[in-house]
Design a protein around this nucleic acid. Structure first.
Lengths: 196, 196
DNA sequence: GTCTATATATCGATAGAC
DNA sequence: GTCTATCGATATATAGAC
């Protein structure tokens, strides 16, 4: 593997587990097997590493969701779209917990400019959930009290999976996705679109 | 206010907003209006401040929940108990967002011994949710696929309120509690206990 | 591209005067 | 209980040899 990628891998694990501020360039270098000064041949600063990792995490998450939704037929119901979204969302947070924890708790360590860009990427990702919820209410499939709060609740349930899921645990990742798809449908009182 | 309490107030805000590692003793002292060395007349170390704040936050949260549940009659239904729990939970996270964010993202900065004690306090708090969910399933009020995941989901929805709720926002805290009580009931398919 | 050596700054914490 | 002064460690980052 290229050295830059080894640095990404080690830094991601350490930032996610111990926090950005609590991780030193020496510790990252030690994990790679080089000296701290050599890191600067690959990244201009410590913050540049964090920004690289944050960008990759947010775009990977969005791309995974977009690819999954693109496989649905154009006439797919809101219920189907919600199911695909939440399953991809939960699977990503289970299988990429370090990337998820980085985005969830280390973004404040970014520079002001990078932080703003990261917030925009995250908001773009989350806005698709509200589009689906609105469409489902319009079609009569969904019923909910508040769009913002319901969308936050659905997304947050899945984000938390990154904090407890372990591959060797009681449930396979597919089972976890099944449960959360059911929970999300309950939050919007999902009904079959042909119910009327 | 006693100086120790002023230190608690300033440190809580700075730890929650910028993170424990990113906050220096000089910055805390500056917020109080004293010099960094004077902090050590009130707390033995920086970690002692974090531990003090974490303990207070976790016991306050548990106490608020216990007091609210204690006001219910002994024969209260699981549905009523869930409603009181989630409303107290959400209200605390909305009105004490700094304490909530401290517990949610700075606990890893504690010493190993203190971290373990904090995890136990948090688990004790969360276990009551599972007791209510089990009772509701037994009585036929609730229906859910997985106890652990459903309880995580309910608690996590409310925890996230601390990250976005603003007193000057669109909804009063009471309205937010109403919406989340409804969302929690949906997650367990809550029905009136006298339905059969 | 990695190394040693180092610059410069800041960290948590202590000593001792007042 | 607050202050000034400072210790020793460690931080990010750079310079220059190889």
């Amino acid at each position: 593997m290229a050295t830059a990628d080894e640095i990404r891998q080690v830094a991601l694990a350490q930032f996610a587990q111990n926090g950005y501020e609590a991780t030193s360039m020496r510790e990252i270098a030690g994990g790679v097997g080089i000296k701290a000064a050599s890191l600067y041949n690959h990244f201009g600063s410590k913050e540049a590493i964090l920004w690289d990792l944050t960008c990759t995490a947010l775009t990977s998450l969005t791309q995974a969701r977009d690819e999954a939704l693109a496989e649905l037929p154009a006439e797919a119901s809101a219920r189907e779209r919600l199911s695909v979204f939440i399953r991809t969302h939960v699977r990503f947070h289970a299988e990429n917990s370090h990337q998820a924890m980085l985005v969830n708790s280390q973004m404040t360590a970014l520079s002001a400019s990078h932080f703003q860009q990261a917030v925009e990427l995250r908001d773009t990702y989350q806005s698709e959930m509200q589009i689906i919820l609105r469409a489902g209410k319009r079609s009569g499939e969904f019923s909910y009290l508040d769009l913002d709060l319901t969308s936050y609740a659905i997304l947050q349930m899945g984000i938390a999976v990154s904090m407890w899921y372990r591959p060797e645990g009681r449930l396979r990742v597919g089972q976890v996705c099944d449960v959360y798809a059911e929970l999300a449908e309950r939050l919007v009182c999902a009904r079959d679109p042909g119910f009327d």
